[in-house]
Write a protein that binds this DNA or RNA. Structure first.
Lengths: 338, 338
DNA sequence: TTAACAATTGACAGCGCTGTCATTTGTTAA
DNA sequence: TTAACAAATGACAGCGCTGTCAATTGTTAA
């Protein structure tokens, strides 16, 4: 059967407490002792029993991922990244999809947290962008790591993994400018999402950098969906100032824009360039494939989880911040301005 | 702080063992006693500590979902369904994405199962369709519930939730026939998937039922992807026997077929009808929206998890089987034959 | 009414680990 | 060399629950 701490202790000729110390990387264990124990651990392929640890100790070995996001690709990527970190660190992951607008949300999460002794939470938008919510979690004595859009942390209540949408949007736009485009349409996502705001900011910055006058009529309010892309593109292409390129706030919008353009008999990229954002599987399933910005969600999530675990062990503090800048991926949906 | 079994026992004036019995729905507790205990449980909002249960008992309160599937929508649906069942039954869910072709797969799963004391597994294709794998799991003394395509269970090693792709494909095809179509193309998914086989079988059955001669040249081998849909549709539409309708083995293929048709200047559904399969979000993100078959994955998964939990409590046996037939959803991609 | 049995309840050990605190060992300075 | 202290290790209780088995209570038939 499975080896227990007793087996290890006996074989190594030490007390179970010492084995425990080694397993938890505690100080004041002499190096030779540590090695002796580790050797036996390897030999017996010993792994501490999570239930026993949870029951006996005050520390927790679980983190949770709560989310409210209709984008399955995004959720799966995040989840896989967190799972990878958990696996490496011997943590357990609790998955908790929920409704960000539910009244009993706080009660629900509190219950889960208390019941399962959660060390911390990985938060994605919209949760990560609600300072009050983050504060409430901290008040419950739960560590939090947030994934948010921007280039500077909003506060130091909890650590952040920043996604520099601003810089990424800027480089996508620059790519279009470099191809000779001057009239660049912009189809936005939901205005409430910080990512939308940041991406628009990057787009505008690139225009300024290249001394291109901003044309407000080229900016369409939309949402992160295929339909919105279809609608936005039609609006742009039927407008006065017909653009030669369209910056879409994500890949789904871009797919919609692509579709609308095709319907209108506009060939891509010859007559119109279109860009996406996120580099989701979606962007490889359109035709032509989409030029986009690669947002390494899985890596981001793994980092977030690692940071969270470190925080729960007091190895890192709240002001810890990391930053990712999605990188331009040039595919077939962009070309020289006609 | 949180109430423990001791608090409940004291307040109810019984021993902790009796509380335990009530919590586990064991027999031989007198009704009045049971009620008395339950009242206190309610009052204190008592919930048994999972770690303690796992440590003390022989029973397990965790199930796992292992999968190898690139379709994020599918995975999320399944996961949500399983999660719903777990929540209701006080179980924990371990998520375990993995590579079905990895050599160390069995070792990996064995390790997880032993380490976390898993009661059972929810298996989806490809795992669910490998009898040897299922048998290996049972040999490890793990309950298994499989979600498989077909109308009769392949064996009684483990319970099955059957998805009657045959009947669903038949009714989609019948829908096309009813619209006057006689030359109906078929773009298949991977031949290794039972779902492909079953859907093809349903398609053929419908043709037979309507005395339409099967034209093998109208059947295209493909895979479950957008690109495959594009390719398959082109092949069909450039062929000798140009079909007036295309049955696609899933929504992604259908989206590809839709795209290809548009490119070729064929208007949908006026000149060509196209159907999908699965009713994934994908089918609502195309234009026109897809006629498809609704496969209630979340519900299926919830049922599977409930069945699994029942089995782990020996309340159900291995020959237990449930069946779902995906229902036709008529949208805008199908119309009268021209 | 009572023995004989079944149904119900309880006492207690122990699951595998960690926290606390006592004990042992090693190290330093006088 | 030794006292005085710090570092390393161990003994032991107990986390909250379940399994085992013994004790109690209720029920039945003679």
């Amino acid at each position: 059967m499975k080896a227990t701490i007793n087996d290890v202790a006996k074989l190594a000729g030490v007390s179970i407490k010492t084995v425990s110390r080694v397993m938890n990387n505690e100080p004041s264990v002499r190096q030779p002792t540590r090695e002796k124990v580790m050797a036996v651990v390897e030999e017996l392929n010993y792994q501490p029993n999570l239930a026993a640890r949870n029951l006996a100790g005050t520390k927790s070995f679980s983190i949770a991922f709560i989310y409210d996001n209709p984008n399955a690709y995004y959720v799966i990527d995040m989840q896989n990244g967190i799972l990878a970190a958990c696996k490496k660190q011997g943590f357990e992951l609790l998955i908790h999809p929920c409704d960000a607008k539910a009244d009993n949300l706080l009660a629900e999460i509190t219950k889960m947290v208390k019941h399962s002794r959660i060390a911390g939470l990985v938060l994605t938008p919209p949760f990560s962008e609600q300072p009050e919510f983050v504060q409430q979690m901290k008040d419950l004595d739960i560590e939090v790591v947030r994934i948010v859009s921007g280039d500077i942390a909003p506060d130091d209540i909890a650590p952040c993994i920043m996604v520099n949408d601003h810089a990424a949007a800027q480089s996508i736009t620059q790519h279009l400018v470099d191809l000779g485009h001057k009239k660049i349409g912009f189809i936005a996502g939901e205005a409430e999402h910080r990512s939308t705001v940041e991406r628009l900011r990057g787009y505008k910055q690139a225009l300024v950098d290249n001394a291109i006058t901003l044309d407000e009529s080229l900016i369409i309010n939309g949402e992160y969906s295929f339909e919105s892309g279809v609608k936005g593109a039609k609006e742009l292409l039927n407008g006065e100032e017909k653009p030669t390129a369209i910056f879409s706030c994500n890949d789904e919008i871009a797919a919609g824009a692509l579709f609308a353009s095709r319907l209108m008999g506009i060939s891509i990229p010859e007559q119109l360039s279109i860009t996406g954002f996120e580099n989701s599987p979606f962007s490889r399933q359109t035709w032509p494939t989409l030029t986009t910005a690669d947002q390494p969600n899985q890596q981001i999530a793994e980092d977030a989880a690692n940071l969270l675990i470190a925080c729960s062990r007091k190895q890192k503090n709240n002001s810890e911040t990391q930053q990712y800048t999605p990188q331009l991926v040039v595919r077939d949906s962009t070309g020289k301005a006609s």
